[in-house]
Amino acid sequence: MKAVNKRNLAVVTLIVILVVFVMWRERDSEAVAVFKSQELPTESGPRAGLLAPALTLQGSDGSTYQVGGKREKAVLLNFWASWCDPCQQEAPELNVIAAKYKDSLDIYGINVTSHDYKPNAERFVKKFKLTFPVMYDQKGEAFAKYNGAVFPTNVLIDKNGVISEIILGILTPEELEAKITALIGS
Score class of each variant (00 low, 15 high):
2 K>I: 13
7 R>T: 11
10 A>Y: 15
10 A>K: 14
12 V>M: 13
16 V>E: 07
19 V>K: 08
23 M>N: 14
24 W>K: 00
25 R>A: 08
29 S>N: 11
35 F>Y: 15
36 K>P: 07
40 L>F: 08
42 T>L: 11
42 T>E: 13
43 E>H: 03
44 S>P: 03
44 S>G: 01
44 S>D: 08
46 P>S: 13
46 P>K: 04
49 G>F: 08
50 L>W: 06
53 P>V: 05
56 T>Y: 01
57 L>V: 12
57 L>P: 05
58 Q>A: 09
58 Q>E: 13
62 G>A: 10
65 Y>H: 15
73 K>W: 00
73 K>G: 06
75 V>Y: 07
76 L>F: 03
76 L>S: 08
77 L>I: 09
79 F>W: 08
80 W>M: 12
83 W>A: 00
85 D>W: 06
86 P>R: 10
86 P>G: 11
88 Q>K: 14
90 E>R: 03
91 A>F: 05
92 P>A: 07
94 L>W: 06
95 N>T: 03
95 N>W: 12
95 N>K: 04
96 V>T: 14
98 A>V: 03
99 A>M: 02
99 A>F: 00
103 D>M: 02
103 D>K: 07
108 Y>V: 12
109 G>H: 04
114 S>D: 14
117 Y>S: 02
121 A>I: 06
124 F>T: 03
125 V>T: 06
131 T>P: 00
132 F>E: 00
135 M>S: 13
136 Y>S: 14
136 Y>N: 10
137 D>C: 12
138 Q>I: 10
139 K>R: 14
141 E>P: 00
146 Y>S: 03
149 A>F: 00
150 V>F: 13
151 F>N: 00
153 T>A: 01
153 T>E: 07
157 I>P: 04
157 I>V: 11
157 I>W: 04
158 D>Y: 14
159 K>G: 09
162 V>F: 08
163 I>A: 09
164 S>T: 13
167 I>H: 06
168 L>P: 10
169 G>Q: 12
172 T>D: 07
173 P>K: 10
173 P>Q: 12
177 E>H: 07
178 A>S: 13
180 I>P: 02
184 I>G: 02
184 I>A: 09
184 I>Y: 04
184 I>F: 12
185 G>W: 12
185 G>Q: 11
185 G>N: 15
186 S>I: 08
186 S>R: 12
